[in-house]
Simulated assay, not measured.
Amino acid sequence: MIRPATVDDLGAVLDFWEEAAENENRPTDTHAALAALHLRDPDALLLAIDGNEIVGTVIAGWDGWRCHVYRLAVAPARRKQGIGRGLIDAAEERFRALGGTRADAMVLDDNTGAHGAWEAAGYRRQAEWSRWVKPLPR
């Protein structure tokens, strides 16, 4: 089952990401940041649930203009079972319902294990653009 996260899920999502998500080259996720996302857009964080267990996540971010996909993660023991594809499909359906026309996914170059999943879902690396980042001091 895929559903939006609730406020009560946020701590479990952070624990899940420690095990299942790519955590290199990125700021540490915090409960406050996840709570802020949920407050701003409660339907953005989608969870794949099996019984009471989180087995996958994706953030389907919509800013009113562009569609951005972040934090696609599947439990290591559950990979290659279609969970990631189901989450990508759910994110795309959300975007279509909101009027989105193109989605982009943030995938680290070194996360080669994820490249095949994105390619299988029809995503292609866009060679002519680079992502520019600047950490914002608190």
Rank of each mutant, 00 (worst) to 15 (best):
A48E: 10
R78D: 06
G61K: 06
M106G: 12
R102T: 09
R3V: 05
D110T: 14
T101M: 10
T6H: 00
I49Y: 09
P4T: 00
A105V: 15
I54G: 02
L72T: 06
Q126C: 09
H115C: 05
I49C: 12
I49Q: 10
P4N: 00
D8I: 03
M106I: 07
V133M: 11
A90D: 09
I54H: 02
T112L: 14
W17K: 08
A60Y: 03
A75N: 07
A114P: 04
A75H: 15
A21S: 13
R124K: 12
L98F: 06
P4S: 03
G116Q: 07
W65T: 14
G116N: 01
I49E: 15
P27R: 05
G61F: 13
I83A: 09
A48F: 08
A36F: 04
L34S: 07
P4E: 00
A36S: 13
A5S: 05
A103N: 02
A91Y: 08
G113P: 10
L98N: 05
Y123A: 04
G86T: 05
D8H: 07
A121C: 12
E119W: 04
K80Q: 14
G51W: 05
G99A: 11
R125W: 00
G11W: 00
L39D: 10
E19M: 12
L98D: 08
A97R: 13
A35G: 00
L108A: 15
T101A: 05
R40G: 02
D8A: 14
A48D: 08
L136Y: 06
A121H: 04
G86Q: 14
L10W: 06
W129R: 13
A44W: 05
N111R: 06
I2C: 04
R138S: 06
E92F: 01
N52D: 15
S130A: 09
I49G: 06
I2P: 01
G64R: 09
N111W: 06
E22P: 13
I59T: 13
A32H: 01
H115V: 02
W118A: 11
V69G: 05
I2V: 07
E19G: 08
A33P: 01
G64E: 01
D50A: 15
L72V: 13
L108T: 08
L45Q: 09
L72P: 03
V107I: 15
K134W: 00
L10M: 07
C67M: 03
Q126R: 12
D15L: 13
R26W: 01
W62P: 03
R40Y: 02
L72D: 09
L108D: 15
E18C: 08
L136P: 03
L136K: 05
V107K: 09
T57L: 07
D15I: 14
E18Q: 15
A12Q: 15
G11E: 11
E18S: 10
